[in-house]
Design a protein around this nucleic acid. Sequence first.
DNA 1: CGACTGCTTGAAGAAATTCAATTTACGTGG
DNA 2: CCACGTAAATTGAATTTCTTCAAGCAGTCG
Lengths: 208, 208
Amino acid sequence: MRRIVTKDRLSEYKYKKGVEVYGENEPAVFVYQVKEGAVRSYKLLSDGRRQIGAFHLVGDIFGLTSGESHRFTTEAVVETTVWLVNRRSLEARVEIDAVLAGHLLRLTAKNLQHAENHMLLLGRKDALERVATFLIEMDRRLTAAGAMTMTLPMSRHDIADYLGLSLETVSRALSKLRRSGILSFIGNTQREITILDREKLFALDLQD
Amino acid sequence: MRRIVTKDRLSEYKYKKGVEVYGENEPAVFVYQVKEGAVRSYKLLSDGRRQIGAFHLVGDIFGLTSGESHRFTTEAVVETTVWLVNRRSLEARVEIDAVLAGHLLRLTAKNLQHAENHMLLLGRKDALERVATFLIEMDRRLTAAGAMTMTLPMSRHDIADYLGLSLETVSRALSKLRRSGILSFIGNTQREITILDREKLFALDLQD
DNA sequence: CGACTGCTTGAAGAAATTCAATTTACGTGG
DNA sequence: CCACGTAAATTGAATTTCTTCAAGCAGTCG
């Protein structure tokens, strides 16, 4: 796994399940990379409605912002270990290291691209399409090479708030995909999933 | 108005209403700035559903991407004049000009921030809240200082595809805001709007 | 073992979409 | 300059989709 700054002596930090890493509008002091676990980053409306903008999985860098403060709240989805780098020291290094500067720009651009695709999902896809897109994304990001199955770290509630749906609608969509033979739950948990028919799943995820 | 590269001899180009500037997945050759008019940038699903990710108004820079190709299609909303800069020459300049590099990074970060806020709108706000948020955004971006009224360049259909709604729902929300005395249409067009009660409008746009 | 959390499923309700009709504005050509 | 055809917007009614409310079940963790 590529770390943010390999030369640095990186601090490591552990967060228990559900614990906040940083809050929206807090000063951005550190940049983080997930060593183990998963993190959700979200915004809240004043009445409590929540929109998760992204899940950060093993290897992902998060907390990078060009402003002074964070624009999301982030929390550990499960027990999570992160590496962290002081933001100031990173910025200082950017001044002299053009390669690192390029890395950070491409990272921001990658985040932008994800957000752009997610706007299409949230604005124009129906519930089944959203869940299909989600499964394809997670399959790509957390199914080990050659493995048949993935273990979702997040709850139905988290998935719902990522997809702009209610948790019941997510559950119904997953049940529908299971009944139609596209996926199957493994063991006695509902978070271990095998994609049985990738063709059909891709067909539901209408290309843009 | 700050132009992309003031020292350059900038090319100018005109697009008639509805004409495409560039298509999604086309190689990114130019970076653009709106001199006059307005541009919409959008993604399509294969069955024609459209999600507009942003409107680019006078002064805005668009078409900047870190990849090789554009990730949106863009079209002139009305008769539009743009300045354009060759992307390669811009990148070459970035190598030596750290200030310009900083400008571009902050521009990408600004686009990201807009997308992040828009995800919250698309995922969690209801129709009236979306329209209120839209009006506040447009009021900020295109009401001249001191002016009481704004002229929207885009149709109800465009607004709908920006807000993830049907055009009828947008129309009904605007009518509701008019009936409740929050805004008023000027003249015989429905695109000139005066915000009569900013307080009430802001109250509908729940803070995050 | 038992409270609890997470998930599923059903039924009722709400919100937004679709279909449809009408009105109003707009541009073109006679 | 007016008439006509077209495009844009509004409004109502019917329908669809998703949400909310509710009940029940299973797995987990003290």
